[in-house]
Amino acid sequence: MPIDTTLVGREFPPTRPYLVTEADVTAFATATGSAAARVPATFPVVVTFRALLDFLEAEQVDLSRIVHGDQRFAYERPVVVGDELTATLTVTGVRQIEGTDILRTTSTITDGTGDLVCTAGATIVHRGDA
């Protein structure tokens, strides 16, 4: 099922606030082999991925047909334990090439006070049934 091209420009509802716990950071750092004096740089994917899952559910897209095209994080400040993070995903572009949908998204990650922590850009590739 092709992804609806009229989604471009649409902002999806923010994810529910996600509390960054010591345990979650340790699990992420252990899984990626990091020493983790600091929250690992790619940790915000935990929040942006939730936004993506919400989006895929809303659009009835099967996760197993999704691969990641690119990803970028630009940080206003490092994420720290105790942050309450929310991601808001906006679709910035949809292209279709031979049955594959290429979706550009931007997610803003804000803390409990609404301040910007990180901006994440991602390209999501949806492989069609062909």
Binding site: H68, Q71, P78
Partner: peptide, 11 residues
Amino acid sequence: DAEVVEIGCKF
């Protein structure tokens, strides 16, 4: 373990 300000790549 410096503070990362930006990180990105294509897959």
